[in-house]
Design a protein around this nucleic acid. Structure first.
Lengths: 227, 227
DNA sequence: TTCATATTGTGTGAATTTTACGCAAAGATA
DNA sequence: TATCTTTGCGTAAAATTCACACAATATGAA
């Protein structure tokens, strides 16, 4: 039993985990809650922050425990603190945005009910997670202009059409194929690859790799990807 | 006495309050701590979040109580959760960025020791507030591209040189006078004012007002101020 | 093998925006 | 009235964005 002179809220972390594939576009990973409150509802993986770990560590721990994924990018994007957002007691949550390489859920102990949902087919969510998701998406859209985080969602070797549909999926817009390729190549972050991509219906597109060293160089002088 | 099965951290809010005037440029409002820990150190106004209010409400309350200012803009920009950031007990803080019309500190009860510091003359700060300040400044620089929040820092009627030095002060850069004016006017957010500005050494610059209605119109179609 | 089809790679000119900078007008001071 | 400083306006060159055409490559059917 832990005692305080003043009431303290409980603190949780929640992870909005995005993944991507060409078939379903941008998707988010949800877990079906096995316990009350909101039993049977879908929610973000997350849990109580331990008293001896910071929120970043806690979010990462919960993410791995509940989904088995190793995030390629993770970033705190806000605290959600509405007084009655949790029916049990006063709980505030610190929300994280994570990108992972999409795949079948490897499954830790709790992961039996984890599933990917394409962004346009997300069910009603527990707590205030609907609002958290909206904020996460708008944050992802902002971030993609400043960091090449999109590349974390693709395999290490990818084609220009793949890269374009990823960007279109995240930003919800359509780009001219030729202008998109020109801009991307002009950034100097891509290098053409020898290998050929597999499983393409028509002409085989050239494959590229993301040059992370080049990106690190560019960051020092400030940096922005325009679209 | 409040008892929990699991340990709960304390939760505070802290406000990084920015003000501006031509003489000192961008400044931040700090309070000298009267109690331990960090007694005598300068820190952001803030305090414990109440169990029956959300963080936004708490931040606003503390801001008003401790400084007497009414923020023209306020925005949460992050939670800081390092395990040992407070020597007393586990305390996490939710940090807010606020803009106020700079003036003498009106002073609530605690405000006796509040003072404005120009950004290039900020003393060492209590807790992890140095880091919080750095994050706040970079957030302010980002935000100024998407919202005309700079106008909240100026008097309702202002001149183009005033507006320019505000932007230069926030972004830490220098713009060509003529190009800056052209871009600003081109946005359509300014309307020329009849009145003349006072106290100018040479030629009297024309004065402008910020057209908030026009801004609200523009927001719907997405919006970005480029520099 | 050949042809029609689908998809990718590259280029180019027009329109727009950014950038650098010249010059005259307006007020203050001598 | 002359001089100095600051503001307002304009313009040409450079860079970027945007719309679009055409050739090249692979597949599958004839």
């Amino acid at each position: 039993m832990f005692k305080y002179d003043y009431p303290h809220p409980a603190v949780t972390t929640d992870c909005v985990i995005f993944g991507y594939d060409t078939r379903e576009g941008l998707s988010v990973l949800l877990i079906e809650r096995g316990i009350e409150p909101f039993r049977g509802c879908w929610a973000f993986p997350g849990g109580f922050m331990r008293i001896d770990e910071d929120a970043d560590t806690g979010a990462l721990r919960e993410l791995k425990e509940e989904t088995g994924f190793e995030p390629l990018y993770i970033e705190q994007f806000g605290a959600f603190t509405d007084v009655d957002r949790d029916p049990r007691e006063r709980v505030i949550t610190i929300a994280y945005l994570a990108l992972v390489k999409k795949g079948p859920v490897a499954g830790g102990d709790d992961a039996s009910k984890a599933r990917w949902f394409p962004l346009n087919a997300v069910p009603a969510l527990a707590f205030d997670h609907d609002r958290i998701l909206r904020v996460a998406i708008s944050r992802l859209r902002e971030q993609i202009h400043f960091r090449p985080i999109g590349f974390d969602l693709l395999p290490p070797v990818f084609t220009m059409p793949q890269l374009q549909s990823l960007y279109e999926s995240i930003l919800g817009t359509h780009f001219d194929r030729r202008n998109f390729a020109a801009k991307m190549l002009h950034l100097g972050l891509l290098e053409a690859d020898k290998e050929r991509s597999e499983n393409t219906p028509r002409r085989v597109p050239t494959t590229y790799r993301f040059n992370k060293d080049r990106y690190e160089e560019m960051k020092s002088g400030g940096f922005r990807i325009e679209f």
